[in-house]
Design a protein around this nucleic acid. Sequence first.
DNA 1: GATGAATGAGTCTTCATTCAT
DNA 2: AATGAATGAAGACTCATTCAT
Lengths: 190, 190, 190, 190
Amino acid sequence: MIRSNNTREKIERAAIRLIAARGMDGISMRDIAGEVGVTEAALYRHFTNKDALVWDIFTLYYDAFAAKLAAVHEPHPTLRAKLAAMVAACCAFFDKDRDLFTFLLLAQHIQRLAPKGYQAALPKMLRELLATAIKRAEIPKQDVEISTAMVMGIVLQTALYHLYQKPRSTKLQPQATTLSDACWRIVKQK
Amino acid sequence: MIRSNNTREKIERAAIRLIAARGMDGISMRDIAGEVGVTEAALYRHFTNKDALVWDIFTLYYDAFAAKLAAVHEPHPTLRAKLAAMVAACCAFFDKDRDLFTFLLLAQHIQRLAPKGYQAALPKMLRELLATAIKRAEIPKQDVEISTAMVMGIVLQTALYHLYQKPRSTKLQPQATTLSDACWRIVKQK
Amino acid sequence: MIRSNNTREKIERAAIRLIAARGMDGISMRDIAGEVGVTEAALYRHFTNKDALVWDIFTLYYDAFAAKLAAVHEPHPTLRAKLAAMVAACCAFFDKDRDLFTFLLLAQHIQRLAPKGYQAALPKMLRELLATAIKRAEIPKQDVEISTAMVMGIVLQTALYHLYQKPRSTKLQPQATTLSDACWRIVKQK
Amino acid sequence: MIRSNNTREKIERAAIRLIAARGMDGISMRDIAGEVGVTEAALYRHFTNKDALVWDIFTLYYDAFAAKLAAVHEPHPTLRAKLAAMVAACCAFFDKDRDLFTFLLLAQHIQRLAPKGYQAALPKMLRELLATAIKRAEIPKQDVEISTAMVMGIVLQTALYHLYQKPRSTKLQPQATTLSDACWRIVKQK
DNA sequence: GATGAATGAGTCTTCATTCAT
DNA sequence: AATGAATGAAGACTCATTCAT
């Protein structure tokens, strides 16, 4: 009874770990199965196919992460505080589960997997936050979509830099204020 | 300077176009050969193997681009002007040859291809520019590597956003000043 | 005579329907189970394996059909009348349960399933009918096996033609006399 | 130079032999490749996929056979003579290349392979022959499609009977006149 | 009677690469 | 320079079947 979802979770973790390390196209169903310790066929009892496996896992964890970020910024009244809280949460997440963070970062790029008209939750939330802040005159009028892209670029590219250029032990959290200050400076605009 | 080697250039363009559209792992040697109009075997007369093909093309164009950016910022005395010139050049490049820009953007991610200890020219240049500006007290002391990552993130993520979310005809150049202003605000710090 | 075994009957009908539509090799145990609404494993409670499933269903219905044909021709004294009655019954059967008819038609071809020395009941009956008619001088001497094949060919190929080329609603019964006349003309041999 | 089409022909014969013996679904690409003495991958240089392989071979030989039958009946003026010539040619074909005959017989059943609206050449020819004969008053008015089915049934079912019930050495040609007489008796209609 | 999870062998197909010509 | 044929390894996926529950 308890054993039920056990395999599925093992598959999820194995897929996350492997894809984080070698990318979606760099791994095979065989790899995942081997990592879990089951046959390839067993994977198909839990996921329809490879694409679905990646996409299902992606949305599951991505949405959870988006929800966490929403909860994290919610109590704060100002955009600046919200940004700081969210960036800090991102850094903490990166440090706590680097594989998952990397997986989410990579899976985003696989446009092919997303159903038509799919809207990623995170940029959507950011856009809305910025729009509200503009309405409240916290920040000047600006192109919300470009600002969203820039803010995300600041965080993601720094994460990427840590991923590729720094030893695995290096933490991102020490950079949290640097990053959120930068984000704020961009949307505040002069 | 007529490069007699016509087929090789055709292969380069075909690879760039296809990889920009579907990613390195999404295309096969057969796809490239088909696009060029030759046999797969013919590709091996111009490149040792698939990895080399991608990597050779990547470095060829990436280095050329890096050189262009160097030439573009060189005449300008201040960091701010340098940044503005470079960002503008990036946007112009994106608009003029979106396939190549995309290819360069994607190929960067394929760590596996790079020889050990490979240092991408662009971030290196940026780091040096920032270091110099600090020395000259144009900008305050700061973690040069983080600043580099953030500046690149601003430009690249915005490009990515245009790639994935906007129709192919949308240009990036109108955003050039917005982007370079943002970059400047980040390194200027306060 | 209530057969308590409800699931087994559902399996039979599902198998007949699916195999009629896509052939024995075109369907899987999963397909059948899905059609019935049970697990694949459940099928194995009613049939030892896939081959047995098909064969058991085949013989069950084939023998029943052969028995019906026997009952149908029995009251008639002459071969001509017997043929007419049987052909008519065939056409009626085709019209009433096209899936079952098709299934029986197809399953015949799967020689592999039949136990060694298996003799299909229908041709056997026909052969005996012809032999008797010859003995009684109703029809001239002839190669009974060839005649049997020809008579069956007339009916079966016409059925096949209706199956493949005509809309599902087309009935075979209107052709019954045409067919039985043809059969008679063949065995009568002018 | 001469070696060119050699492999393709070997593949054709291997496929014909194996499919005649075990049916299309009973054989794998591996089987065919093994029989030819090449890798599975080599098959894909000559045929797009398994379905195409079977269909291409089928049409190639089926059309050739249909053309031969056309040539065979052409010189004869009367329907009766035409039928006799064609049936004789069928029997001779059966005896000479039983594998190919069987393959053609089986492949016909795989409706899935045929492109939409595909019209088999043989029944079409027969229908036209019958229609002409009716117009010329050689035979009485009748449902041409049903007559075509019955004529084909006579020949094919007899062939099938030989295939399944008789030793491989048994010839069909001795039955040629029996069969063509039967066909004639059916269309002549007393 | 039936399920859910799993297996192992097998399916077709694609891939990068090689080589004789 | 380029082709056509071939390979061997690997890819994703399916299948009939089993078994503990």
